[in-house]
């Protein structure tokens, strides 16, 4: 991690190793040092704990920091609300809760390529303002968060 903290930058906390690989592809395609992927948290609750313990104060110190919490929804709509409950009001516009509807392993049968490839394609969608992969049934529930995130990501690129 060697982002310029005075300029807009993105941190991402992946829930598990599969999400880490998606993040790798996203970061490769993004091609910018202003995107940092944290080590795997080891569970969706751990993502939230890590965010609360390590990042809330830091985000207050660094107003240019955006945060992506990348977790599995395990087919639960309420997961996003639960995650949002951990985000202080003043940071709400800079934190984004994204993830696969069930778990990334489901992609293995979706014919979209490896997890890293999917990450690359998601980044391209974000950059080009398209929804080729984001509209996939495993990801469609992210639409609202995505609309908030991608505009700000394009500004960083």
């Amino acid at each position: 991690m060697s982002v310029n903290k005075d300029r807009p930058h993105v941190f991402l906390i992946p829930e598990d190793d599969a999400n880490r690989q998606i993040a790798n592809g996203f970061r490769l395609e993004f091609g910018n040092r202003q995107f940092h992927v944290e080590p795997v948290a080891g569970g969706w609750r751990e993502v939230l704990l890590r965010f609360s313990s390590d990042h809330v104060n830091e985000m207050s110190r660094y107003p240019e920091r955006l945060m992506i919490l990348l977790l599995d929804f395990d087919r639960k709509f309420e997961r996003r609300d639960e995650a949002k409950g951990h985000i202080p009001d003043q940071l709400m516009d800079r934190v984004f809760v994204l993830g696969v509807w069930n778990e990334p392993e489901d992609f293995k049968h979706a014919n979209l390529g490896s997890l890293e490839t999917i990450g690359r394609r998601l980044a391209r969608d974000c950059r080009d303002n398209t929804k080729e992969v984001w509209r996939h049934e495993f990801l469609g529930h992210n639409a609202e968060e995505l609309a908030r995130l991608c505009g700000r990501m394009r500004a960083i690129q």
Partner: peptide, 28 residues
């Protein structure tokens, strides 16, 4: 990641590593 990105168009980057952060920047 800079090396991976730079060599992906026609070239190739192969590395060895014991470093956790380097290992994390590749995939399965």
């Amino acid at each position: 990641l800079a090396l991976r990105k730079a060599f992906e168009a026609g070239g190739q980057f192969i590395a060895t590593s014991h470093n956790p952060e380097a290992v994390r920047r590749f995939s399965d």
